[in-house]
């Protein structure tokens, strides 16, 4: 019974699907243990959106008018939710580039585990963190007077769309994390991420921007999620009346699907190219 001997050596015999799930869960658990080991890191990560809400809501908000009327802080909150989801791809990219640089990804690849678990487990952990971020942000928003007037189902739908955006950006983060050589150079990605969130409807209605910039902002995938979330939360929408703004709900589904369809294969290919 050679098979039995092997089993005694390599642990319990289970199906391939079982080990795939177990591998993913173990990678997820590892990422979440990081937060447990570094409580300060999560304070920073969750504290930053709160500070942003207060800064934009009260410093900028005092000078802001929402086209078509409505309270600016009501208008702002869905924008802050989406901005936080968008910036999340940076933490994915950072985690991946750190693992790649330290040889941890090579170690995983030299082990008999499922290779896909490295990215899938990471993504699952990122979504758990995204849920925590949305919870903290929503509580802050409620504390400063924001209300979701559209009903609980609609509100759940809005949070679902926000998480869908975050999900699609996991693959952008994995791909970028495997592209850039060091965590230091990954830090430079903030210079790209920042304009991407600013040139959108998150903080200012595109109709108030110069023509070409307004068009770019309206077509930004982040804007579709923001506008859709505003509609579902029952917050001021301030639509400029363009096609993409009028079909925000549809586009908030289409954009993340397109991003996933483009960047998931790119990330997979990049991962496979590690063995070339």
């Amino acid at each position: 019974m050679t098979a039995l001997e092997l089993n005694a050596h390599t642990g319990p015999e289970r199906s391939r699907a079982h080990w795939l799930l177990a591998d993913c869960w173990n990678i997820t658990r590892r990422s979440l243990t990081h937060y447990q080991r570094q409580p300060l890191a999560i304070v920073w990560q969750l504290g930053f959106p709160i500070v942003s809400v207060l800064l934009y809501g009260y410093v900028f908000g005092s000078a802001m008018k929402v086209p078509g009327g409505g309270d600016y802080r009501e208008f702002l909150m869905p924008g802050m939710f989406a901005t936080t989801m968008t910036m999340g791809f940076m933490s994915t990219a950072m985690a991946v580039v750190t693992d790649a640089g330290k040889g941890v990804i090579d170690r995983f690849r030299s082990m008999p585990m499922a290779p896909s678990a490295v990215a899938v487990g990471r993504g699952a952990a990122d979504l758990v963190v995204a849920c925590a971020e949305l919870t903290i942000l929503a509580l802050t928003a409620l504390a400063i007077g924001w209300r979701a007037g559209g009903g609980p189902l609609e509100a759940a739908g809005a949070f679902g769309l926000l998480l869908l955006l975050r999900f699609s950006l996991i693959w952008v983060g994995v791909w970028l994390g495997l592209m850039v050589p060091t965590p230091e150079s990954a830090g430079g990605l903030y210079a790209v991420a920042f304009p991407v969130t600013m040139i959108s409807s998150a903080l200012v209605a595109p109709s108030l921007m110069p023509g070409w910039l307004g068009t770019a902002a309206a077509w930004n995938p982040v804007s579709s999620t923001v506008t859709a979330a505003r509609e579902l939360f029952g917050n001021p929408v301030a639509s400029g009346g363009t096609w993409v703004e009028e079909h925000a709900l549809l586009m908030a589904l289409v954009w993340p699907l397109v991003i996933t369809l483009v960047f998931l294969p790119l990330a997979v290919r990049r991962f496979q190219r590690l063995s070339r």
Partner: peptide
Amino acid sequence: MFGRLFHL
């Protein structure tokens, strides 16, 4: 963690 990923 590595042990669990080695399926022990």
